[in-house]
Amino acid sequence: MKSTDTTPIVARFGRVLRLLAHLAIGVFIVATRYSRLAQAERAVVTRRWAQQALKIMGAVVTVRGINPGFYPPNTLLVANHVSWLDIIALNSCTVSRFVAKREIRKWPLIGWLAYVAGTLFIDRGNRRDASRVNQILAEAMQNGGCMAVFPESTTSDGSGLLPFKASLFEAALLAGGTVQPVSLRYQRPDGSLLREAAYIDDISLLQSMRLVLSVPRIEIEICYGKPLKAGDAGLDNRFQLAEEARREVARGLGLQLEEAPAPQAAPAVETGA
Rank of each mutant, 00 (worst) to 15 (best):
N134I: 03
N134S: 10
I136N: 09
A138D: 03
E139A: 15
E139S: 13
A140H: 14
A140C: 08
A140F: 04
M141V: 00
M141R: 07
Q142G: 08
N143K: 15
G144E: 01
M147S: 10
A148D: 08
V149F: 10
V149I: 15
F150G: 13
P151R: 09
E152I: 01
E152S: 03
S156R: 04
D157W: 07
D157G: 10
D157C: 09
D157F: 04
G158T: 00
G158Y: 06
S159Y: 00
G160C: 03
G160P: 01
L161S: 10
L162T: 01
L162C: 06
P163R: 07
P163E: 11
P163Y: 09
K165I: 05
S167Y: 03
A172T: 00
A172Q: 02
L173Q: 11
L173Y: 02
L174N: 11
L174I: 12
A175Q: 06
G176W: 00
G177Q: 13
T178E: 07
T178W: 02
P181K: 06
P181R: 08
P181I: 03
V182N: 08
V182G: 04
V182C: 09
S183G: 09
S183H: 07
L184H: 04
L184P: 00
R185V: 06
Q187N: 09
R188N: 15
D190A: 14
D190C: 12
D190I: 12
G191Q: 11
G191S: 13
S192K: 13
L193Y: 07
L193A: 11
L194N: 15
L194V: 04
R195F: 09
E196V: 09
A197G: 08
A198V: 02
Y199I: 09
Y199F: 15
Y199A: 13
I200A: 06
I200H: 07
D201M: 02
D202Y: 11
I203C: 14
I203D: 14
I203T: 15
S204N: 04
S204L: 03
L205N: 11
L205D: 10
L205F: 15
L206F: 13
M209R: 07
R210E: 07
R210D: 14
V212L: 08
L213H: 05
L213I: 02
L213Y: 02
S214E: 02
P216V: 05
R217W: 08
R217Q: 15
I218A: 10
E219S: 11
E219C: 12
I220D: 06
I220Q: 05
I220A: 10
E221A: 13
I222K: 06
Y224C: 00
Y224M: 01
Y224R: 03
G225I: 02
K226R: 08
P227T: 00
P227L: 06
P227V: 01
L228D: 09
K229Q: 13
K229Y: 04
G231Y: 05
A233E: 14
A233I: 10
A233R: 13
L235V: 11
L235Q: 08
D236V: 12
D236W: 10
N237Q: 12
R238Y: 00
F239W: 14
Q240K: 15
Q240P: 05
L241K: 05
L241I: 03
A242S: 14
A242L: 01
A242T: 07
E243V: 02
E244Q: 14
E244W: 10
A245Y: 07
R246Q: 02
R246D: 01
E248A: 14
E248L: 13
E248R: 13
